[in-house]
Design a protein around this nucleic acid. Structure first.
Lengths: 212, 212
DNA sequence: TAGATTGTTAATCGATTAACAATC
DNA sequence: TAGATTGTTAATCGATTAACAATC
């Protein structure tokens, strides 16, 4: 699956949308879908969908459309979801707790294999089937369980320190909810989620829409 | 603040980043910052920052830089944060609970004025200073409190129904965590947050990075 | 004034849209 | 075969980067 050209982030971010809808179609017993119909369902142009998919190969049948289950499988392999990545969550506050119980992660093949916190009231509790361990033991657990992806939902003040420990323990990717830029080695992939951007965009839109 | 041309989403999404860092600078007692220095801190090119800001006016001083507190104030007004928007959250599961306690929202001027759920074990509880009310009363509360922005953290199955009720009650913007496309009138702004995209991107990156 | 840094214009780059030949 | 729909090439659009004149 080596590509000549780097695939843009925009394409990568649309793949999970396609995948989720294809699963729904599959559940509904629909075997074939055209880019036209899929685009309608998702609010994306059919040209865009076809263009995105051809970054990775020719999965459709001309004059027919795409076989739903086949395309599902292709996208799984493109994203790499067949790997069943193991994730660990540091900071089991409300947000960490919510993510530990987030069904969609499991449905995509991610397995929660470690939950870490400093709070003694939380350590030892079973959250979504996993027992919270002291963050002091995090590196050991990451190594023993073979956790590849870390999620950081700690306060910003300790996020960098937690990230450092994750990297030391061999984590390859970090999904951070802390509102700051983490410094990590080049080969570590960091994706930052900023929950306040959505609200800010809504505020901007509501403030400026009347003036059009 | 009428603009000739629509401002791109990319610009709007960077404004909150600038704002957050400017607040930190302000706390640190720094009065003036150049686009060069700010860019370094944020991992954004100085040209990009200057270009973004000039979409809205000329806020800097040539040969000097930007006055931190002045720029802060400008961005607040551009985004519309001085309005102190009232928000209501429907679905007080783990994620809704986390958002109700999310400090950053308050720091940006958003005020939680309503929490709604169907679960009798949750109704009546005080979450982050607000008592959870039955979702059956949501429309009344939205109207009485003058809530303008709704956050949806319900299961996908009821998200559309909740959105409909929010719109009926006069909500203008919706921030949805439900993994589906909501159908709303044209004048309602919907921003969808998809927490699984981050993990999918990490999976894609880890799967494909070795082959470069 | 000299040095620094903005705001703006031009050049480049990349992503989306449109058009259509290939083909099921 | 005729109709439908893909995959691909070309055209358009928009965003980022570079360059530099304006000016504090």
């Amino acid at each position: 699956m080596r590509q000549k050209k780097a695939i843009s982030d925009a394409v990568i971010e649309r793949l999970p949308l396609y995948y989720r809808d294809l699963l729904l179609l599959q559940d509904a017993g629909i075997d074939i879908i055209s880019s036209e119909k899929l685009g309608e369902r998702l609010g994306i142009t059919p040209e865009q969908i076809r263009k995105d998919l051809t970054c990775f190969g020719a999965f459709g049948k001309k004059g027919v459309g795409y076989y739903v289950s086949e395309l599902c499988q292709q996208i799984v392999e493109i994203i790499g979801l067949q790997q069943h990545w193991k994730i660990g969550i540091a900071g089991i506050g409300h947000l960490g707790w919510a993510l530990a119980n987030y069904k969609t992660f499991g449905r995509l093949g991610f397995r929660t294999a470690g939950l870490f916190d400093v709070d003694h009231r939380i350590i030892g509790q079973n959250v979504g089937g996993v027992v919270v361990t002291p963050i002091a033991d995090m590196k050991d657990v990451i190594r023993k369980e073979g956790i590849q992806i870390g999620i950081i939902t700690t306060p910003a003040a300790v996020a960098q320190q937690v990230a450092d420990q994750m990297v030391e323990a061999g984590i390859q990717g970090i999904f951070s909810f802390a509102p700051l830029r983490l410094t990590v080695p080049d080969n570590i992939f960091v994706f930052r989620e900023d929950l306040s951007i959505g609200l800010s965009r809504i505020s901007y839109y509501l403030t400026n829409k009347k003036e059009d």
